[in-house]
């Protein structure tokens, strides 16, 4: 409870003290980016997970997609997409959305092989997601299970920014307004047909660039203003 008030940097040090050497230790050992930094200059990692459901305790990560933003441009050379091997059968209703079949999943890598790369990419950077609790909680659950400590990360959430923009303009929010693919056309961003972790991460990255540039047109945009309070 207090930890949340004391801020992410405090949480990071606390978690670091608990964790034994390994990928999460290395990750937590890297200081977070200064909140006063300009979003136009820092490195941000846009990430999206496809999961078998919404409960990190019961459900599994099916795939991970991420792409880096550096100096306010998305670098496709950093694009990374992996399928996670899940040993349980994938529930049919979620397969409809992410279209990952049992066979594809079986050909993926176990999460313990993939998580170190995710942590390494996020170290010293900011995580960007659309509706970030999914990414935060699922990665944190995996970290607890594998490394015995929680995952702490500074987060930008485009859904939260969207919500703030609506509220600031006194617009009532209709159901679905804040979905990634409904927010994008407001910034004249193209529609992507594919629906998977990487293309959603990319779509989120572009949306963030558009939102930040519109909120702070032509001037520095302080990271602190965008960080999620969660």
């Amino acid at each position: 409870m207090f930890a949340r008030l004391l801020g992410k940097e405090y949480q990071r040090k606390q978690a670091l003290a608990k964790v034994s050497p390994g990928p999460l230790h290395d990750y937590l050992d890297t200081p977070f980016i200064d909140k006063k930094s300009d979003c136009r200059e820092i490195e941000i990692v846009a990430i999206d997970l496809e999961t078998t459901g919404l409960d990190p305790k019961k459900d599994d990560i099916l795939s991970i997609g991420l792409v880096h933003i550096d100096g306010f441009s998305v670098k496709l050379s950093t694009a990374w997409h992996r399928i996670v091997r899940v040993d349980k059968a994938i529930p049919g209703e979620s397969a409809v959305i992410h279209q990952i079949t049992d066979d594809q999943s079986a050909a993926g890598s176990p999460i313990e092989e993939l998580l170190p790369e995710v942590l390494q990419r996020l170290a010293g950077r900011v995580m960007l997601a659309h509706y970030s609790p999914i990414e935060q909680n699922f990665i944190s659950a995996a970290c607890r299970k594998l490394y015995g400590a929680p995952f702490v990360v500074p987060v930008i959430d485009t859904l939260e920014i969207g919500q703030r923009v609506f509220e600031r303009r006194n617009h009532t929010i209709q159901p679905g307004d804040l979905r990634l693919f409904n927010l994008r056309p407001r910034y004249n961003l193209p529609q992507y047909r594919a629906h998977n972790a990487l293309s959603d991460a990319l779509a989120t990255a572009e949306l963030f660039l558009a939102m930040a540039d519109n909120l702070y047109p032509g001037r520095p945009c302080p990271l602190g203003e965008f960080l999620s309070k969660r």
């Binding site: 441009s73 496709l76 660039l209 519109n214």
Partner: peptide, 14 residues
Amino acid sequence: LPADIEIRYLRRGS
């Protein structure tokens, strides 16, 4: 080609 691309956004008037 795609891996060599960077993506950038320009607000109207930029």
